[in-house]
């Protein structure tokens, strides 16, 4: 592993903003601060995305609003010879637990409840943390941000499971599974939280840190 070094001292790392420059976030080319569009890749460049937090919160709220009906309406409608059964996300997991597959029930609960809720909390925490000096080191927050960005897409797995089951289990009168309306809300919730995480300008995590270290020389730098 090779590390890029500007000066050999980590505490001396300068951001493009400090140097009066701006970095393209798409292709990592550096330009003079007044540049508006990256001449290499055509991406719009901004030293700091000033509308970032507004968009983060807007998508966050949309995502959260979609997450509520996603838990109230049925995700799956199972029709067998004798009965029609509609399951919400949590209801389905409880059902599975009672019928002897606690492992699968746990996976569903973690994927559809624990991870989405943790994601909402993580994004909110990050968005709040950059507006004030934070006790959590920028390094840890960067890791948190990477995890949120990485995990975000995986919540879509629920929707795919519903799609596979509903298309597969179509045995006429014997058994049929159909998607419920919660699936749409759940998908929207995942998409909005992904957009919310993408809108977050992760460079802000390090700005507050840089201002803080001006006062007491680089303590949390690693």
């Amino acid at each position: 592993m090779v590390c890029m070094e500007l000066s050999g001292q980590n505490a001396d790392i300068k951001s493009a903003k400090d140097l009066g420059l701006v970095t393209c976030r798409r292709c990592s080319r550096v330009w003079p601060i007044e540049t508006e569009v990256c001449a290499r890749c055509g991406h719009a460049v901004q030293s700091r995305d000033i509308t970032s937090l507004q968009r983060v919160w807007a998508f966050w709220v949309l995502g959260f609003m979609c997450y509520i009906p996603a838990n109230m309406f049925p995700m799956l409608q199972t029709r067998t010879l004798l009965q029609v059964q509609e399951d919400t996300i949590i209801g389905g997991a409880v059902e599975l637990f009672h019928y002897g597959s606690p492992g699968v029930a746990a996976i569903i609960l973690i994927a559809s409840v624990v991870i989405p809720v943790a994601k909402f909390m993580a994004i909110a925490f990050l968005a709040i943390s950059v507006t004030r000096p934070s006790k959590v080191s920028p390094h840890q927050r960067t890791v948190l941000y990477e995890v949120v960005e990485y995990i975000g897409r995986w919540s879509m797995i629920d929707i795919f499971v519903v799609a596979i089951m509903a298309s597969l289990v179509q045995l006429n009168t014997l058994a049929a599974i159909n998607p419920g309306s919660a699936s749409l809300f759940f998908a929207l919730s995942v998409i909005f939280t992904m957009l919310s995480a993408q809108a977050f300008d992760s460079r802000m995590i390090w700005d507050v840190q840089a201002e803080a270290t001006d006062h007491h020389a680089g303590e949390t730098e690693t």
């Binding site: 890029m4 500007l6 790392i13 300068k14 951001s15 493009a16 903003k17 140097l19 420059l21 701006v22 970095t23 393209c24 976030r25 798409r26 990592s28 080319r29 550096v30 920028p138 960067t142 992760s202 460079r203 995590i205 390090w206 700005d207």
Partner: peptide, 8 residues
């Protein structure tokens, strides 16, 4: 520049 933290 680092696209994630703006280090240069």
């Amino acid at each position: 520049g680092c696209p994630q933290c703006d280090a240069t």
